[in-house]
Write a protein that binds this DNA or RNA. Structure first.
Length: 510
RNA sequence: GCGCCCGUAGCUCAGCUGGAUAGAGCAACGGACUUCUAAUCCGUAGGUCAGUGGUUCGAAUCUACUCGGGCGCACCA
């Protein structure tokens, strides 16, 4: 990673002046003209040194240049900011190190368990599930990439009232009777008439669709198994022993208010049945017992009211942390008009239909492109168009282009004499962006913002296309060709990495 | 009524722990194909970052309130 590397170098160079433990933070200036990288440390130091930032910056710049200019880093100050400019040789050697030696990420001892999709097997998956699935799957890939110990589960709600109603609805449909009050409607209910176990059939269909999208889980965890194994009773006993539950109005309550919830919640209803919440505590308790120290749940926005009580339960039971990522809902459009969906009447567009229409690559890209907490407006017609309006092709095309050039380039292109390494504008900006690849990956993983990798991919592809047009490769010769070929190889690796993290294919020709 | 998310260009959205002159794609307009694949590139135009205060050397970003949109407020799952 380039930012921690620069931070280390600059902090060391300034160690005589800086307070102990002070790490210079490195950022990328918005205006490329200012520098390749920058630090605002003179502002942070102003109080401590009792001097004005521009004055501090001047002194620091002098020190940096004295110690680091030989390495290829030159500093300058502007309005208190310290801007860093990297020499071509420096950039090149960092790229070589990054791609040839590989990158090591800081270690974390936590064991992570992610839970996502989590759909009732009472109907087909919809586009919202597709979004949680992709957000979760890309995050999983990101965490693995930076070396985290991570497992993933899809929790199947295969128990409870909804399942009963669902079975009853299928049964009624089979006999030609009226669907029970609050039951399930739609053509798919009729189609399940011949199936031996409609619940299993739905689970199978979920597996099939998610499989086609290349969304992977280490386990599909059955809610029913928690009932059967007695895990729910055991958990209720444990809560009782710890004094975390009490009886009132004929029901058993959890003291969630002691852990930050607005009100206490029912665990066991007056009729003796468990609430969904009680079973979910048992599930989270199972995760904790299996040794996971960091839990991540991804839910749809319609469940956000549920966050506090589950957090309360996890807090009451363990030291493990729980992060909940809320995916905002997806509004489908077709031809610019909103597609209204009604679960009651069974009028829905299923995830599978969308997948059939636009394919896994485009679907994944559209679902991951926007931040999880932005409402997503998704136009089916737009995604169907296999043209320039469709950003996934932009990135894939960049990859295909590079593959074709590499294919045509004869041999490895010889070794590059770094003595006379100069980078033209297009080469330089591509190189600088590529240098930040692993910073982007690390930050995206750390902050659990999987959409950032999509944004980065597009910008890297853009820089490549510009480079491609202005810097001929096969038509150039000697050192210039060797340099461009090398840059191309690294860029291809970078784009391929990104596409891999996004779970999108990296075609070698288009 | 209470809580969560959102409000940035005509449209869809980026904007990383608060930083310098606010970014991309699409749409609009003008250019570039005897080429390494034009699924591309280059350029022009487009803004009161919903609004008003506050914190700060500095706010699209933090904070309070107002307005607007979405979603929740069960002994449902």
């Amino acid at each position: 990673m380039i930012k921690p590397y620069l931070s280390e170098l600059v902090s060391d160079a300034l160690s005589a002046t800086l307070p102990e433990e002070f790490k210079v933070s490195i950022e990328v200036p918005k205006q490329a003209g200012h520098g390749d990288f920058a630090t605002n440390c003179s502002f942070q130091l102003a109080k401590h040194l009792r001097k004005a930032p521009p004055q501090i910056a001047e002194g620091l710049v002098e020190e940096i240049n004295e110690k680091l200019s030989a390495k290829g880093i030159t500093a300058s100050s502007l309005g208190g900011f310290i801007n860093l400019k990297l020499s071509s040789e420096f950039i090149w050697s960092r790229l070589a190190s990054q791609f040839d030696d590989g990158v090591t990420f800081p270690e974390h001892s936590e064991k992570v368990l992610m839970e996502y999709v989590c759909a009732n097997p009472t109907g087909p998956l919809h586009i919202g599930h597709g979004r949680w699935a992709v957000i979760g799957d890309v995050l999983r890939r990101l965490l693995l990439k930076v070396g985290r110990d991570v497992s993933t589960e899809n929790y199947i709600n295969d128990a409870g009232n909804q399942i009963k109603l669902f079975r009853a609805s299928v049964e009624a449909s089979k006999k030609g009777e009226a669907i029970p009050e609050g039951g399930y409607h739609g053509a798919y209910i009729n189609e399940l008439a011949d199936v031996e176990d409609p619940v299993q059939a739905m689970i199978d269909s979920h597996k099939k669709v998610l499989g086609r999208m290349d969304v992977q889980f280490d386990d599909w965890f059955s809610e029913l198994s928690l009932h059967k194994s007695g895990a729910v009773d055991a958990m209720l006993d444990l809560l009782g022993e710890k004094g975390l539950s009490y009886e009132s109005e004929g029901a058993l309550w959890f003291r969630s208010t002691d852990y930050g919830d607005d009100k206490d919640r029912v665990l066991k209803k007056a009729d003796g049945a468990y609430t969904y919440f009680a079973v979910d505590i048992a599930y989270h308790s199972s995760k904790i017992n299996r040794g996971y120290t960091r839990l991540v749940d991804i839910w749809g926005a319609d469940h956000h009211g549920y966050i506090n009580r589950v957090k309360a339960a996890v807090k009451a039971l363990s030291d493990s942390s729980l992060d909940v990522i809320i995916g905002q809902l997806v509004t489908l459009f077709r031809d610019g008009e909103q597609v209204r969906m009604s679960k009651r009447t069974g009028e829905i567009i299923t995830l599978e239909e969308v997948l059939d229409e636009i394919g896994a690559d485009a679907l994944r890209f559209f679902m991951i492109q926007k931040s999880a907490d932005t409402h997503l407006e998704f136009d089916l017609q737009l995604a169907t168009q296999q043209n320039s309006e469709n950003p996934v092709y932009y990135v894939q095309y960049a990859h295909a282009r590079m593959c074709r050039i590499l294919e045509k380039a004869e041999g490895p292109g010889g070794t590059l004499s770094v003595d006379d390494l100069s980078l033209e504008d297009y080469e330089r900006s591509l190189s600088l962006s590529l240098l930040q690849l692993y910073d982007e990956i690390y930050e995206s993983a750390n902050q659990m913002q999987s959409h950032r990798i999509a944004t980065y991919s597009v910008s890297l592809a853009k820089l490549f296309h510009g480079f491609y047009h202005h810097c001929p490769i096969l038509k150039s010769e000697g050192d210039v060709q060797a340099k461009r070929l090398q840059l191309l190889r690294w860029t291809q690796l970078g784009i391929k990495d990104c596409l891999g993290l996004l779970g999108i294919t990296a075609p070698e020709s288009m």
